[in-house]
Nucleic acid binder design. Sequence first.
RNA 1: GCCCCCAUCGUCUAGCGGCCCAGGACACUGGCCUUUCAAGCCAGAGGCAGGGGUUCGAAUCCCCUUGGGGGCGCCA
Length: 484
Amino acid sequence: MDRVRVRFAPSPTGYLHVGGARTALMNYLFARHHGGVFVLRIEDTDLERSSRELEEQLLDTMLWLGLEWDEGPRIGGAYGPYRQSERIDIYKRYAEELVKSGKAYRVYASPEEIDQVRERLVGSGRPPHFSFEDFQEYMTPEREKEYNERGENPVIFFKMPRKAYRLADLIKGEINFKEGSIGDFVILRSNGLPTYNFACVVDDHDMEITHVIRGDDHLSNTLRQLAIYEAFEWEPPRFAHVSMILAPDGSKLSKRHGAVSVEEFAKQGILPEAMVNFLALLGWSHPEGREILSLRELIESFDLDRVHSSPAIFDVKKLYWMNGVYIRNCDIERIAQLVVPYVASSGLMTKDQIDANIKWFKAAVDAVRSSVELLSEFPDKLRIFLEEPEIPEDIIFQIKEKGLRQIFQELQDGLASLENWTPEAISSAIKKVLKDFKVDRKDFYKSLRKLLTGAEEGPELLNVIYLLGRGKVLKRLEKVKSQA
RNA sequence: GCCCCCAUCGUCUAGCGGCCCAGGACACUGGCCUUUCAAGCCAGAGGCAGGGGUUCGAAUCCCCUUGGGGGCGCCA
């Protein structure tokens, strides 16, 4: 087999949808696994909806995911340009070639007129499939002259052969398209730009793409593209159609189902490796059933033969769980850095305050990370260390009621006289008072927690005491004494 | 309407004719651990859409039905 060359070809018309991200990932993994080339091509022939800003954002998101391309925007390559808007002469030339060989034809008609033809077809009970004969009145020399004088361009239609096509899809298996299932279609628009199906074929051929891995919403496009390859007598690439990602209700995943773009998940605090790992498992499985896999491991074990063909529902709960796994296992230096912007924008601490207390910050992040699935949940968990809690009034009463007053005072003294404020020192101070006073340990710990944080649950108490700092702890302990 | 794709626990999936009275993961339930919550560990409940074939034998192969999805644009 020749060297593998695959491509991801998004249109910069919005954020990177998770479905697109998965397609990109599979192309990337396939290329890397086979030591091939991963090309990024920008399909920006829809002038209305494409923008350069969105393209930049798209590229940044790709890099955030860790999907570096070998050829494409920003870095170029031997097969460029990689933006379709910069290749329009190429498409024109190829379209012209098809017209010359009689495999395509010019139609001097407006979109409205073509709509009328379609309506006429449907009205007479025929499927909306155009053919050469339907456009006779728009192909007259008079029409052509009219167009030339006005400086307008005709559209170029491709003559779709009325024959059956067969596709050996790498994922779906053999697919048969019946004869006459579609009609002639536009390959070059009146504004001189190519349509998707045409540009796609021309580029894939010129860029020597060997494998086209894309969503199966393109399956019916493949029929058209196969016909174009045939018209040029080009050898088509191998196709692999991955099934779509669906919403929980089984419909197409869209904005009304919540977050659907990689950017949104990134904002929520999904780590890129969790996003990648989760997406890889949507439609693909590891040979040994492993689920937590790094990019490296994915590259190592990924191949098309384990991609299966049924659609997958996007289960955000599992994504969150997986992200929690990554948050727990992440290097503390890195996780702390990732949490910084979330805490800063919450107003709990400024960036400078964090920098000035970075050791403390890391310990705090470490103390709460096991209860978090998203980076955005950190500020709320860190709050107990930073804000004055509301201590329930009755806690002092309860402490006295349970006969804990003395031990609390003893603890206060013990903590106050500690030489170093370290978890170890705090721990031994607690052990000491616990030895001196015969109290119910459960009562003691629970009451202490409530007195210090106002809550009945939270991180390990020793951590809480240490991270709260001596000042706050002593002050809260003081209440027991003063309200005696 | 026409064309195409898909169908294993609620969800992601393993399974590619006997190893399956179907295995794993998330979620769920119970227990253990723990000062609490979380994490972790253990256990449990839960599925081959339906009907026909083929075969000694079918979740696995074929056909039909049903259900879901995609497409039928001078969008990609």
